[in-house]
Simulated assay, not measured.
Amino acid sequence: MPDSVNPTAASTASSQGQPVRFRGGGFTVRRHPWAALAAFAVLIAVWEGASRLGLASPLFLPPPSAVGRALAGMVADGSLWLNLEASLARIAVGWVLGTAGGMLVGFAMGIFSTTRAVGVPLVSAFFPIPKIALLPLFILWFGIGEPSKFATIGFGVFFPTVIATYSAIDSVPRNLIRMAQSFGLPWRSILRSIVLPGALPGILAGFRITASIALILVVAAEMIGAEYGIGAFVLTAGNLMLTDTLLAGVLVLSLLGLAIGIVLSQLERRLLNWR
């Protein structure tokens, strides 16, 4: 076999001073900081070229240069900051509420058998419900203002957080917990020193999913009933057939999602530096 290593040959190569290739990398992740930028540059260049060659109609797919001018106009007249501030405030409140509640319930389901027996069927029943379909009901309960949007985002974030937290705790190796119990560690110390660090990668991975869900839900909620916000801005631009302005709003959403991903990556590096 070509990948097999002859121990005698390896020892002979080592004795002759020849380096032996290291095979214990353990799937080490290598950083390629310019790969993503190069991919975006190629995509934008192809898009701009297709528009300039007439392969795409400027009305239906304006070139990136037109989108950039529309975005610059949003920055100049202040509409970008007004709408972005409204959307960020809704995302922050709804995501924090849904994440806090989801982590509490997920921890309880992962640790206590009774809570798991009750929680798993309920989560399985409510999770598939489209959360934006409940917005009219939330408007009836909480009014047309901000509380109904907070409830929509929080409800959408809650269930994925429960599943991610519960699954992450359930995947912590049981032999580590049994070993700690055999040494007589209190259960609080076991949770703090073994369960929480072991479950943290899965919980942080769930944060990436719920942040995207919050971004999607805030846009949908703002399209239904909001004066300001990126979703309301995109809807207005679409109704007026201002496709360059519409795509500028979509670009802002994409950049917002990218910024959230960078923040979560930094959080993972800080909290999971022990890996």
Rank of each mutant, 00 (worst) to 15 (best):
residue 250 V to M: 09
residue 2 P to W: 08
residue 220 A to M: 05
residue 133 A to C: 05
residue 152 T to K: 02
residue 150 F to C: 05
residue 164 A to P: 00
residue 16 Q to E: 15
residue 100 A to K: 07
residue 24 G to V: 11
residue 96 V to I: 15
residue 189 S to R: 13
residue 142 F to M: 07
residue 83 N to T: 04
residue 71 L to C: 05
residue 82 L to R: 14
residue 206 G to A: 05
residue 117 A to F: 15
residue 151 A to K: 01
residue 71 L to M: 11
residue 101 G to V: 01
residue 19 P to G: 06
residue 73 G to Y: 01
residue 239 N to H: 11
residue 155 F to K: 00
residue 200 L to C: 07
residue 28 T to Y: 12
residue 268 E to C: 06
residue 64 P to K: 02
residue 214 A to F: 00
residue 145 G to V: 06
residue 215 L to G: 01
residue 173 P to C: 08
residue 146 E to R: 06
residue 3 D to P: 13
residue 198 G to E: 06
residue 40 F to Q: 09
residue 49 G to C: 09
residue 200 L to N: 03
residue 228 Y to N: 11
residue 108 A to W: 02
residue 95 W to F: 15
residue 185 L to K: 07
residue 49 G to R: 07
residue 48 E to T: 06
residue 49 G to P: 03
residue 43 L to I: 12
residue 35 A to M: 11
residue 244 D to A: 06
residue 89 A to Y: 12
residue 182 S to H: 11
residue 67 V to E: 02
residue 192 R to L: 13
residue 161 T to M: 09
residue 11 S to A: 15
residue 225 G to M: 07
residue 273 N to Q: 14
residue 26 G to N: 08
residue 187 W to Y: 14
residue 79 S to R: 09
residue 222 E to I: 02
residue 234 V to C: 07
residue 171 S to N: 11
residue 175 N to S: 13
residue 81 W to H: 12
residue 118 V to H: 09
residue 178 R to N: 14
residue 237 A to E: 03
residue 126 F to Y: 13
residue 244 D to M: 02
residue 5 V to N: 11
residue 43 L to H: 09
residue 36 A to I: 14
residue 227 E to L: 10
residue 188 R to T: 14
residue 55 L to Y: 11
residue 22 F to H: 14
residue 8 T to R: 14
residue 262 I to T: 11
residue 210 T to Q: 01
residue 207 F to H: 04
residue 211 A to T: 06
residue 27 F to G: 14
residue 86 A to V: 02
residue 114 T to Y: 10
residue 42 V to N: 07
residue 39 A to C: 12
residue 151 A to R: 00
residue 98 G to C: 04
residue 129 I to D: 05
residue 140 L to Q: 10
residue 229 G to Y: 00
residue 48 E to L: 06
residue 205 A to M: 09
residue 146 E to V: 10
residue 78 G to R: 03
